[in-house]
Design a protein around this nucleic acid. Structure first.
Length: 448
DNA sequence: TTCCTTTGACCCGAT
DNA sequence: CATCGGGTCAAAGGA
């Protein structure tokens, strides 16, 4: 239900229970929602996102755990800083304005705003997968990466701002305020860490993988753990056998009250995670282990989320597949501020979409299409993974789907184009970036 | 007793 | 319009 968008379910809560077909169900749902107390919120949130159906997807290649990405310097860099209007490095004010705009009018206009032209610099893009398995919190803060960019609060804040802008389209403004208030938290950001554009992931990451695999292996367990626990709490709401795959697919929802992030997890028969797909971005900070309320402390209702503890669901996997180095986890999450603050946020921003993958965006960002894309990516990555497959650890593919094109278009990152190709079935040329591709490039391509 | 997972059924979009 | 298939719901069972 979190996905309120669901037309049928979404409406129901309204109270009418009007669905002729399943009055009972409707009532139940309503009741459930009411009981949870979250229902209302969900309801509120979703509508906002509904309009934009496109969901870009980010695929993170197997060797990476999104969580790792979060920790990785790259993220920091990314956000950070490149002086450009797009990135927001230019100035806080600018950023703020921009973000404001976005919030208010996430529209094509924004796209144009982000010039997205700074193709050349790739320096920041060195992606170093630093798969540390540290807990997200600290990792994120890792000062190391700030290399060039991170200059400090300013930068961090700017990052935050940027992030916000893209992540929380609607909530925004006040959210921004919150975030900025906590300068220290680097933005973990990103959900996008998750945000990693999938594409990137695929190619680059794999490379990295291979080269760094050895080293990483030592950390495998940690990673696995991490991935197992991406720090977010998930509730399994379904499982299904998907045609074409012998692996059952499990559906999880983030238990955080206003968070609509969903996760699809596919496991091979042997229990290894073969694929993880995240939809949406967390609109709340990753629950801190420390803060974990004791079990009893959990908020209330069942339906609700407990955001603190580790999610049981996740835990299982970790235990089960210790080897997976890359299990994945990270969905798109934004970790704006670890503070308590966010939680509610109320905003509903709901998972804001993140810049996802590119490819899709092209023309149509239909949400529908997004699905196909996911699969496509899957295939794609699968090919890549093949090489890795031989290894003991299979690396699961991670796909992050975001929902709004706005985010995609203006993700605040700078991209360097390294290729262009006509994709079959798609009139628009596809651009490639060594690191992650940005929608902007796509846009540019179109313009061309 | 409460909460979580399982699982069959339902919904709905795609073909 | 019918069928297929993915995603979601929610009752039932288990811990």
């Amino acid at each position: 239900m979190a996905d309120s968008p669901n037309p049928s379910s979404g409406d129901l809560p309204a109270g009418s229970g009007g669905s002729p077909e399943k009055p009972v169900l409707a009532d139940r749902r309503v009741a459930a929602l009411a009981g949870a107390g979250a229902g209302a919120r969900y309801k509120a949130m979703s509508p906002a996102r509904l309009p934009i159906s496109r969901e870009p997807c980010l695929t993170i290649p197997a060797g990476f755990s999104p969580g790792a990405l979060l920790d990785s310097p790259v993220l920091l860099n990314n956000f950070k800083v490149e002086p450009s209007p797009t990135t927001g490095t230019l100035s806080m004010a600018a950023i703020i304005n921009k973000s404001t705009h976005l919030d208010i009018l996430p529209s094509p206009r924004d796209r144009s705003a982000g010039s997205g032209h700074e193709d050349e610099d790739s320096r920041d893009f060195e992606f170093k997968p630093h798969l540390s398995c540290q807990p997200a919190g600290p990792a994120v803060n890792d000062p190391n990466h700030h290399d060039t960019s991170m200059q400090n609060h300013t930068s961090s804040s700017s990052n935050l701002m940027t992030e916000n802008k893209s992540l929380y389209s609607q909530e925004s403004i006040h959210q921004t305020a919150n975030i900025s208030s906590v300068p220290n938290q680097p933005v973990a950001i990103v959900g996008p860490s998750d945000n990693m554009p999938a594409d990137v992931g695929t190619s680059e990451m794999n490379q990295m993988n291979s080269s760094e695999n050895a080293a990483q292996e030592t950390q495998t367990e940690n990673i696995a753990e991490k991935s197992a626990e991406d720090g977010y709490n998930w509730r399994k709401y379904g499982q299904k056998h998907v045609k074409g795959s012998e692996n059952p697919r499990s559906y999880y929802k983030c238990t955080h009250p206003n968070c609509e992030v969903k996760k699809l997890l596919e496991r091979s028969l042997d229990g290894q995670i073969t694929e993880v797909v995240y939809k949406g971005i967390h609109n709340h900070p990753k629950p801190q282990p420390n803060r974990r309320l004791s079990a009893g402390a959990v908020p209330s209702s069942q339906g609700e989320e407990r955001y603190d503890g580790a999610a049981p669901v996740e835990d299982k996997p970790s235990n089960i597949y210790p080897n997976l180095c890359n299990q994945v986890h990270s969905a798109g999450m934004i970790e704006p501020v670890p503070g308590p603050a966010s939680d509610d946020d109320g905003d509903g921003g709901g998972g804001r979409p993140y810049p996802g993958d590119d490819a899709n965006e092209d023309d149509d960002l239909d949400s529908k299409r997004s699905t196909p894309l996911l699969y496509a990516r899957k295939m794609e990555s699968a090919g890549i993974d093949a090489a890795l497959m031989g290894k003991p650890n299979r690396e699961p593919r991670v796909v992050v789907q975001t929902v709004s094109e706005v985010d995609i278009l203006d993700d605040g990152y700078r991209w360097r184009k390294y290729g262009q190709k006509v994709v079959k079935g798609n009139p628009n040329p596809r651009n490639f970036n060594p690191a992650w591709k940005t929608p902007e490039t796509e846009v540019m391509a179109k313009k061309q």
